[in-house]
């Protein structure tokens, strides 16, 4: 007897959609969505500034209350949001730095190993990149900053992994 069962979906969505021939003029949903995004993009500067405000608030709270599971979780949440959205909003460098910050927090599970100054440098770098409107992925200063932060973070993560093996 088979140890699995095949289930038929309750709703056949194929009945609710229709495939439109590519020859049909004026029907290009991707182009239409991209155009809508283009219109939406007038908000992206303000939105990124709001995301950075949230990140900085999370950092200030962490400094005031100390590093604990709650404050670090909030710092991770706000940086993770930036990591996910920055490229869409035209700030790929800020997204890469936020990704490095997320990696640090995700990989270094023992809070006593997390260097606060390095966390702070990430927050400052993201804020600076957005404030300076450094949008191009090949922005020289932004690129160098990202590479340095990634390298230092990588070393610290590796050191933490080694310390886990030793203990």
């Amino acid at each position: 007897m088979a140890d699995y069962e095949i289930i038929q979906p309750k709703v056949d969505l194929r009945k609710k959609v229709k495939v439109v021939p590519s020859s049909q003029a004026g029907f290009d949903p991707i182009a239409r969505a991209e155009q809508a995004m283009q219109q939406l993009s007038v908000n992206f500067n303000i939105w990124m500034a709001e995301e950075v405000d949230e990140l900085q608030t999370a950092w200030t709270t962490l400094q005031e209350k100390g590093m604990n599971s709650e404050t670090i979780k909030e710092l991770f949440r706000t940086s993770h949001d930036i990591k996910g959205q920055a490229q869409t909003m035209g700030f790929p460098i800020a997204g890469n730095i936020a990704g490095s910050l997320c990696d640090l927090i995700e990989n270094i599970t023992d809070l006593s190993f997390l260097p606060q100054d390095l966390l702070h440098k990430h927050v400052q770098a993201i804020a600076a990149v957005v404030k300076e409107d450094a949008r191009e992925e090949d922005n020289a200063i932004g690129k160098a900053l990202t590479e340095q932060l990634l390298a230092v973070s990588g070393e610290i993560i590796a050191r933490f992994e080694d310390s886990k093996k030793d203990s």
């Binding site: 140890d3 699995y4 069962e5 095949i6 038929q8 979906p9 969505l13 194929r14």
Partner: peptide, 12 residues
């Protein structure tokens, strides 16, 4: 999801 729906499986 719409054009190439996969069958659903219940196993374990």
């Amino acid at each position: 999801c719409l054009v190439n729906p996969r069958p659903f499986i219940k196993a374990g």
